[in-house]
Simulated scan of single mutants.
Amino acid sequence: MSDELDLLYTEVEDDLRATVRDALTDRCEPGAVTALYDGDRSLVPTLWKVIGADLGLAGILVPEDRGGAGASAREAAVVLEELGRAVAPVPYLTSAVVATTVLLEAGSDLVGPLAAGERTAALAVPFPTGPDGPVPAVRADAEGRLDGRVTSVAGALEADLLLVPAAGAHGTALYAVPADRCRVEPVVSLDMTRRLADVSFAGAPADLVTADGEAAVRQGLRAGAALLASEQVGLARACLDDTVAYLKVRRQFGRPVGGFQALKHRLADLSAEVDSANAAARYAAAVLAAGDADLPVATAVAQAFCSDLAVLAAEEAIQLHGGIGMTWEHPAHLYLKRAKADQIGLGSPGAHRARLAELVDLPA
């Protein structure tokens, strides 16, 4: 563990947070997000243009000499906290973090249009795939044509480009395939703000990105898992803040509900848990930004803790909002659905705990 990492937010990060929060307040109100479940997805492209292109956040991890903002995982973590806080339906995690990291690791020029927010990409692996789990691969022939099917791919429906691990004669390589060259079928997802899709390839012509595909894919998955914790923290803090605000004004027996001691204790416990999760997520982001060797441990700790905590915070929000929390009109259900989907995304908490046990040499 590094002794030199500063986990406090900088002024630049605070300014970035304010900018992203203002944009989401103006453009991502809960009613528009709920409308996604009724089939109205008009919010997605307009919001992504603001976040990815207008604010320049799609290229936050890309060096300036390659057309990006030249920032780091710390700044990306702040963006994800705010996106989680608003349950924003944009492909930031899948395109600006995972796919972008894969392309940077592979040294590909394809990262330029992604950094500019002109195109989006998705890594064609199932969303539950963790950084240390088996990487499913389709088949590639000698001419680079792909055959096979990948299920439950996050971000595929919004992607212009798919990054596909494919098994060939010399191991797993990584190919780039325009989305219109394959079949992308949406599946019914619990969280419609980050939809999943099954992707099928039938002799699809593809361009080789790198012959060492597995290394690039694992780096992308690890960056995604490390920064997903920040999204989960933002979600959990939003649930806590909204619940506290509601209990201050909801009255029962002539007094605010928040004044009852039992509820105070529950909220105090949840607040302490959210602060702990924030520390774990900040450390994972700082380690990723610094290229520290502690990244596998930091990622496993952050995901094992933050995944469950986000679900707990959303469940508490629904219960402590009482009857209104159970309604479709109230946004609490959006947070629970995102939290439950994130809980298995990029590796389940159990998988991360098992990996952590291996890393610290803890016997089963």
Rank of each mutant, 00 (worst) to 15 (best):
T243R: 09
L312H: 14
A284L: 01
E273H: 11
P256Q: 02
V287C: 07
D308R: 13
Q252D: 04
A317P: 00
A293V: 10
L228D: 01
D275L: 13
D292L: 02
S230F: 01
Y283K: 09
Q303A: 14
D294C: 04
S307R: 05
A286E: 03
C239Q: 05
V257L: 12
R282N: 08
K264T: 13
A304K: 00
A262R: 12
H265M: 06
R237K: 14
Q261A: 13
A285D: 06
L309R: 11
C306D: 07
T299F: 09
V257Y: 03
L270A: 09
A229L: 00
E315W: 00
G259W: 13
L270T: 06
D292E: 08
V244Y: 04
K248L: 11
V249R: 13
D294I: 04
P256S: 04
A289S: 06
L267V: 15
L288T: 11
R266P: 04
V244D: 11
L228C: 02
A302R: 10
L228A: 04
A284W: 00
L267C: 12
G259H: 11
G234K: 08
G291S: 10
L247Y: 11
L240T: 06
E273C: 08
V297Y: 07
I318L: 12
Y246V: 01
Q261P: 02
A302V: 01
L263I: 12
K264Q: 15
D294N: 08
G291D: 12
R251M: 14
G254L: 02
S230D: 06
C239M: 09
A313M: 08
R255C: 00
A272D: 13
L309T: 13
L270Q: 06
A286S: 13
R266M: 11
A284E: 02
G254T: 04
G258W: 04
R251P: 00
A300W: 07
R255A: 04
E273R: 15
R250E: 12
L309D: 02
A277Q: 03
Q232V: 04
A317E: 07
G291N: 12
L228Q: 10
V274D: 02
A313Q: 07
A298M: 06
L288R: 07
L270P: 08
H265E: 13
T243L: 14
T299G: 03
T243S: 13
A314G: 01
S230M: 01
A279R: 12
A298C: 06
A293Y: 02
V274S: 05
R255M: 01
R266Q: 15
A238H: 15
L240E: 11
H265R: 14
F260N: 09
S307P: 03
Q232H: 09
A310G: 09
L247P: 10
V257H: 03
A314F: 01
A281L: 04
A236I: 14
A298D: 01
D294E: 15
L227E: 00
F253D: 14
R282A: 15
A293P: 02
I318H: 05
Q261S: 14
L263H: 14
R237Y: 05
Q232R: 10
V311R: 12
T243D: 09
R266T: 12
A245I: 02
A268C: 04
E315R: 08
L309V: 14
P256D: 03
V257D: 01
D269M: 07
A238D: 04
A285Q: 07
L263A: 09
E231I: 00
N278R: 14
L263N: 13
L235C: 07
Q303W: 01
V233K: 03
